[in-house]
Write a protein that binds this DNA or RNA. Structure first.
Lengths: 389, 389
DNA sequence: CTGAAAGCGCTTACAG
DNA sequence: CTGAAAGCGCTTACAG
């Protein structure tokens, strides 16, 4: 924290700059030069601290010559307004919190988190907001973190992802009465704003396309049912199937993990009437399922059609290339940032919970790659493949 | 930032708690209840603010009964010490910075960032340190961010990744004189500590294994040569090749991208004497290369052997499963956190740049999956595959 | 052992 | 237009 007044910073005028930094102010610090403060700049520029502050906050007008003198002095001393002191005066941390409750082993393959963050953060920092991130491992820890960060004044609002069934965080946020944006469809009215991809049409398009090609046994490997988006994908798949008069009992849980997808795939293929097509709730599950299918000697793209969800960068490089539903998670992050900034700019000291939050829907897209494009044989795929032998 | 004294928080004693929160203190705020402060707690508990502070900082001893009274009062009011005020007094933000200069399109498939973060953050927050993240898109922005965050007192130190050739950040950090930990091998002595995986042995094992099987034309698709780890992988591959008396001219740049890997693979296969094995500098490039090879009708695992680097979760699910070099990036993050905390705990108000930083090396592991296991045919792979026709 | 008071580094009504 | 002074919410020597 101690700013070293190196000659670099002082433009090599260290010895002759006609300014002696006070070397102690009740300093109980071990050693080291003391921090440069607004007073040092004021003194060097020959103005009051108020003038320095004003010149850095732009609101009030000062003579240009004074502003220049102050800015020169600040540059010479390498001074910038201390963010902590500023935050204290303003009673705002100028920081948002992002708390993640996630199995860490899911993070390595999940395309959502890094892209969302890469979209979110630049949007916030463009407005000088910082982002504070926390990984928690239990709901208890998570709950405490939300409360603590607000009570301690660490954050001015939150970003939420991975909405869960009956998610207590929505009510918690309402109680805490802080701005928040939910990245995901809350499925109900909430005081928090929300932004999410609407992929219902994509899933319908996928199911209808398969149905049009003659598929009737279209299975679904769903993600973790505790997650709202996993349930939503399942529900839309089921509705699309029902709309075509198709049965929806070919379903298994894959929990968004590779191992789960492997088990789910085996279960589906072992069914009396195995599917001719499988819609996996994520590309990661689809990729794992592809290997399982290969092991079971069910050829993807020949005996069975599959599709995933997310459009991970590797999806086109699988063999056959994986059909999927693409969502731009970076865009989602960027929109979340914009909404959050809008939330805080409207100051609702109270009554935030009174109004309903904004809703912004983004479009997903169905991408029909080779893994999608097969027509079911006259018999089940396994019979087909054995009849070829 | 305004804490709502809801009945929830007050344990439903809101009306009869015998305590009237002062409703204004020169409050110029729009509306809303004012923030609960240490004075409110002191008043309710019938002690001084000093006592409240002490009871929350543990150092000095207070009578247990007083501590209890204070803590009860704090709980009743939902008060927690304001982090900003605390930081100001302590002249420390209790926060570390993590600034990323990265092409955002690389983030979606990169296993490093999310896992590293998932290891790093819990380590820091266990010690009540926060992590501030920033994505920048130019070196200029990056440099300013380091300087600004220190000058503004936003952070107490930094985490660095993606070390570049002749990386100016190492000197910048030394100049700024703040604690830092580098995740990666700086390749030279630096005042910052560093933690990284040593994979030289893994790469040698891979090359030697191929050489032992009779491969002599082992190519390398390297990552972005601006990055130190890409260069290191190349150098170690080249040294291992040279040690076996093998030529090192079969090399191409893939830039860590799918498209780059595609181009690099085409270039290598088009060579007069194409390789019988390819070491890709990342799994993402290897996966992309696999598709290119398939398009070129060079069969991985039959005509050519390949291996990647990173061990992404999908690696075992490619076909054939991808041999690779595994590094535990979560462990790397956890170790980086530990080192950083150790750095700040030793207070070096000056002279940080005098001593050399600590070095911690972690082990990588070579994982020989099916894509690795072929022996080269008597002729080149393309001749082999055409002679089979 | 406990409290009054100074001070962390700013910002901003307020007074000149 | 400009500055002196109060105050943001804490912590901590210092004095009782």
């Amino acid at each position: 924290m101690y700013l070293v007044l190196s000659t670099e910073i002082l433009g090599h005028e260290g010895g002759t700059r006609g300014y002696d930094a006070p070397m102690s102010t009740g300093a109980r610090r071990p050693t080291g030069p003391r921090r440069v403060t607004i007073s040092d700049v004021a003194e060097l520029a020959g103005v009051s601290t108020a003038a320095v502050s004003r010149s850095f906050n732009g609101a009030e007008r000062l003579p240009p010559s004074t502003v220049k003198r102050i800015h020169d002095a600040a540059a010479q001393l390498g001074w910038r307004p201390n963010a902590t002191a500023r935050a204290m005066k303003r009673a705002a941390a100028h920081t948002f919190g992002f708390i993640l409750l996630r199995a860490p082993d899911l993070l390595g393959s999940d395309p959502f988190f890094p892209l969302f963050l890469a979209g979110l953060e630049p949007g916030l920092s463009a407005d000088a907001y910082a982002l504070m991130i926390r990984f928690v491992s239990t709901a208890e820890e998570e709950k405490n973190c939300y409360r603590d960060w607000v009570a301690e004044g660490r954050v001015d609002g939150f970003v939420l992802t991975d909405l869960r069934d009956d998610d207590y965080r929505l009510d918690l946020l309402a109680e805490l009465n802080v701005p928040a944006v939910v990245a995901g469809d809350p499925g109900r009215s909430t005081p928090s704003s929300a932004v999410f991809h609407t992929t219902d049409g994509c899933i319908r398009e996928m199911v209808d396309g398969w149905a049009d090609r003659g598929h009737s046994r279209i299975a679904h490997v769903m993600g973790d049912p505790a997650l709202l988006h996993a349930r939503r994908r399942r529900d839309v798949w089921a509705a699309a199937m029902a709309a075509r008069g198709l049965r929806t009992d070919l379903i298994a849980e894959g929990g968004f993990t590779e191992a789960g997808a492997d088990q789910a795939t085996r279960k589906l293929i072992a069914a009396e009437n195995p599917p001719t097509a499988i819609f996996y709730g994520s590309d990661v599950m689809a990729a794992a399922g592809m290997r399982t299918l290969a092991e079971l000697e069910v050829r993807v793209g020949v005996d069975i059609a599959i599709a995933g969800f997310d459009d991970v960068p590797l999806a086109p490089y699988l063999s056959p290339p994986l059909a999927t539903i693409a969502c731009d998670y970076r865009e989602l992050g960027a929109e979340a940032a914009a909404i959050l900034l809008e939330e805080v700019s409207r100051s609702h000291p109270r009554g935030r919970s009174a109004r309903a939050g904004k809703r912004l829907e983004l479009d997903g897209a169905f991408i029909a790659r080779a893994s999608y494009e097969i027509e079911p044989g006259p018999s089940s795929p396994r019979e087909t493949s054995s009849s070829a032998a």
